[in-house]
């Protein structure tokens, strides 16, 4: 057993810190697109539009049923061989695409459950005043479903932040990729990966504080 090289670890922190923005960019972009796509998928699952519903079920089944890493490889290495216009795609874009599709499948199910969890009276009141389906969804049902789904969606966001580390397998130098490169140069694998692990952990902990504030905000209408 050898002692940890603490100086090396401290020196690594600012290096890896430099890649935090890219990691967060992929996670935030992926989450933004996934939220939009998941909401559309969820609304469709509730409305059950003929034919389209069949595709949505298939989509959710595929992206929940296969590993994220396999999906990333399929997009980045596989698809360009079949669809030539995809050769332009860079690793970051492919990672955001993969994260979006993968997580939207999970999030669609929890948003769907949240929509179904909005009290029947809210739908009926919206219908009784003559709202269209779209107005009812957008103005009454989805805002209330957001409150129900928020804790689960934050969980998926945390999962997505960690999922960005797979982008390094597509040649993207983000936090994990940077740690890997540093370790390969110094041979101090334990130190390098410990630093990057702690840094992911800190990011997620900071975010968990944000979760409490988000939930308080979404609950403000429901406090007696």
């Amino acid at each position: 057993m050898r002692a940890l090289d603490l100086d090396y670890m401290l020196g690594l922190v600012p290096v890896i810190l430099g890649y935090v923005p890219l990691t967060l960019f992929m996670a935030v972009a992926g989450m933004g697109f996934a939220l939009i796509l998941a909401s559309l998928l969820a609304v469709e699952r509730v409305a059950k539009i003929p034919v389209l519903d069949w595709f949505v079920v298939l989509f959710i089944s595929f992206f929940r049923g296969t590993p994220l890493l396999v999906q990333l490889f399929l997009f980045y290495f596989g698809l360009p061989q079949v669809l030539s216009f995809l050769t332009q795609i860079d690793g970051v874009t492919a990672a955001i695409m993969g994260l979006t599709l993968h997580f939207s499948a999970y999030m669609a199910e929890s948003i769907r459950a949240a929509i179904m969890g909005v009290d029947r009276s809210q739908w009926e009141a919206a219908q009784s005043i003559g709202m269209t389906q779209g107005q009812m969804m957008w103005r009454i049902i989805l805002p209330q479903a957001a409150r129900i789904a928020a804790p689960t969606l934050v969980n998926y966001f945390i999962d997505m932040i960690k999922g960005t580390s797979l982008a390094f397998t597509l040649g993207v130098t983000e936090m994990m990729g940077a740690a890997q490169k540093e370790a390969a140069g110094s041979f101090l694998y334990f130190e390098a990966f410990l630093v990057v692990a702690v840094m992911y952990w800190v990011i997620v902990e900071v975010l968990s504080q944000g979760q409490k504030r988000l939930e308080t905000h979404l609950n403000k209408a429901f406090v007696r």
Binding site: S121, Q122, E124, A125, A126, S128, I140, P143, Q144, A221
Partner: peptide
């Protein structure tokens, strides 16, 4: 319509 359970928009 006025509902038995009020059905005000909770949000």
């Amino acid at each position: 319509m006025v509902f038995q359970n009020y059905a005000l928009f909770a949000n």
